[in-house]
Amino acid sequence: MSTTRTRPPAPVPAPAPLPNPGTVLADCWTMTRRELVHWRRRPVQVVMNLTFPLMMLVMFVYFIGGGMSIDGYEDYLVPGMFALTMAFGLESTMVALTQDLNKGVIDRFRSIPMARSAVLVGRSAHDMLQSALGLVVLVLSGLLVGWRWHGSPLEVAAALGLLLWLRLAMLWVGVYLGLVAGRPEMVQAVQILVWPVAFFSNVFTSPSTMPGWMGAIADWNPMSATARAVRELFGNPVWGGGTWAAEHAWLLALAWPLLLLAVFFPLAVRRYVNMGR
């Protein structure tokens, strides 16, 4: 076959459709909707996701709290479990993204003239929705095991806001890790590695009871900051303290997620945009 043909100028391009905010929004909604249909398709998994933190709650409150006969442990533990569940949300974000990458679905989205941002925005909108719902279920479960809040409605709302703020930050950590790892084996590694992070925190017990170095890590753990801040807002016991990190928990609960977002949001977006390199 001859490749030496005379080449007249390229045909006049058809007018390019300008990306207008309406289409971008519509694309994001289409992507979110896709995830919501999944809920209908796998109700068992949705229920399992919601009951996992509930199981942990029951286990720690009744078996460990009961075994160690600590009075009012549920008031200490339950807000910690809220923070833990929000932080662990990075796993579900990572899993979903890794699956899409491996099935080639992301390739198809990238070969379609849709808004570039919709894949990740849809993902985060859905994950936030799911986590907000999960949080409601968790709050109700907390009330069932005897946890009560004593703060004003405004303080309670602020506490819930801080929890979702942490979730948003962890979501983008999950997006970045999902894009970088891209393989199910890496997801498993992350699923194991989150546990030390969970235990080196104030979720289950006060850092002041831990050896010095571990207590310092636990004190500065972003999850601890959120947990302590929401305990204060809910009017629940905070146990220990005296360190700078503990005394400024609310500040860290705002700053830590902001820092994580400032690092991982641009990293994730750049990683996604540069998939073509």
Binding site: A26, R33, H38, R41, N102, K103, D107, A118
Partner: peptide, 27 residues
């Protein structure tokens, strides 16, 4: 149109839902 090495579909959506989703993404 691109047909990659793996069927690039959402396994949990129905065939119709998949097509409708891609159709919406083509606006």
């Amino acid at each position: 149109g691109l047909l990659g090495q793996h069927a690039a579909l959402d396994e949990e959506l129905s065939g119709r839902e998949n097509l409708e989703m891609f159709g919406r993404l083509y606006h």
